[in-house]
Write a protein that binds this DNA or RNA. Structure first.
Length: 353
DNA sequence: GTCCCGGTAC
DNA sequence: GTACCGGGAC
């Protein structure tokens, strides 16, 4: 049997029953593919159901507010995906009369749709012969063919893209695309794949050369930088002061609190930190540490501290994009996970007293 | 705790 | 090439 036939055969027996595999609708497939970018099926599945329920059509998606989209996206990470989807839904309404494109060359023009997603949507919705090249495909091909070109280098991307398209099963591109990705996700897993039961083990380069754990090769990621963000919780009766985060940093258009960022881990009781807080919030201001958390991103390790702020003088010129929000409405705002976790803990223990 | 996983935009 | 997030495996 050929490589392609083995994969398809394996897929017919082992595939998971997933909702987006029962449709040819480009809009529904787009929802699933963008949600599944950088995301495992188990984590993405509830979000897919939530989005389809809230936005049954691309028109419903386009007419929503961005805050509603981000609120539904909350906790999934990489929020630019949600913002780009919202923009794309509006472009589809305006430029495509609400009919979601099915062909690669149109899809690739849309925000948030790159080579992988254009190939996936076009092959699954229209049967177009475009090979998907995602992390699963990189892994399966690099191991089976023994290719050690780094998958995150320009040369590697080109090489695997060409090979994947040469291997594409022309009789049913969609079936083959599904098969190789599912095979990568479930059998040719990143860690401890069970090569003993793999139907391709007799012809797999990595297996016969004992290189399964060395492939694929990936260039080392850049070092993470440490950041120290100190949040201040300000109350005015039932209202709390929140900030909408702006472009140029993480969590764009999500909400957190007024903050003071320092270059190092400041001593909370130290005079330097106290001076900084007084400079920001007024000389009479006083603060008390509530909670500390560490939040890890790709390129940043964010050390977060939450303080209760008292006797401050509110001054809009100090931090922009500040708004008072009543406590009961706070959870309606999209929040970064580290903020949402804090809010849940802080106000839950408050209620229990 | 520490390490590893994954598409797109710029 | 680098920035974007959160969760799962160990």
């Amino acid at each position: 049997m050929t490589f392609q036939d083995e994969l398809i055969n394996w897929y017919r027996i082992n595939k998971r029953d997933l909702p987006w595999r029962h449709t040819n609708d480009a809009y529904t497939i787009w929802l699933s593919e963008v949600i599944l970018q950088q995301t495992r099926v188990e984590q993405g599945l509830p979000y897919f159901n939530k989005f389809l329920e809230n936005f049954p059509t691309v028109n419903d998606f386009a007419r929503a507010t961005e805050a509603k989209v981000l609120k539904l996206w909350q906790g999934l990470g990489y929020y630019s995906r949600g913002r780009n989807m919202h923009a794309t839904a509006q472009i589809v309404m305006k430029d495509y009369n609400g009919v979601f494109p099915k062909l690669h060359d149109e899809l690739i023009k849309l925000k948030g749709i790159g080579e992988y997603t254009a190939a996936a949507i076009s092959s699954f919705s229209s049967g177009e012969a475009r090979a998907v090249v995602d992390g699963n495909v990189f892994r399966v091909l690099s191991r089976y063919y023994g290719i050690d070109t780094p998958i995150n280098s320009p040369a590697g991307k080109k090489k695997f893209f060409i090979l994947a398209n040469e291997l594409l099963y022309q009789d049913d591109p969609a079936l083959y695309n599904q098969a190789i990705m599912e095979f990568g996700a479930m059998q040719c897993k990143p860690k401890s794949p069970n090569c003993g039961i793999c139907p391709l083990n007799q012809t797999c380069y990595a297996f016969s050369h004992k290189m399964v754990n060395e492939l694929p090769v990936k260039l080392k990621k850049t070092a993470q930088k440490h950041r120290y963000i100190n949040y201040f919780i300000c109350f005015d009766g039932e209202k709390v002061l929140v900030r909408e985060r702006q472009a140029g940093d993480v969590w764009q258009h999500l909400y957190d609190f007024p903050s003071v960022e320092t270059l190092t881990h400041e001593n909370t009781d130290g005079s330097l930190f106290t001076a900084l807080v007084k400079k920001t919030f007024g000389n009479a201001s006083d603060f008390e540490l509530i909670s500390s958390k560490k939040h890890v991103l790709t390129h940043q390790i964010i050390h977060v501290q939450f303080f209760a702020l008292k006797n401050y003088i509110f001054n809009f010129s100090i931090q922009k994009e500040l708004n008072w929000v009543s406590l009961s409405k706070l959870d309606e705002l999209p929040q970064p996970k580290v903020i949402h976790d804090f809010v849940q803990e802080y106000f839950c223990s408050d209620n229990m007293e």
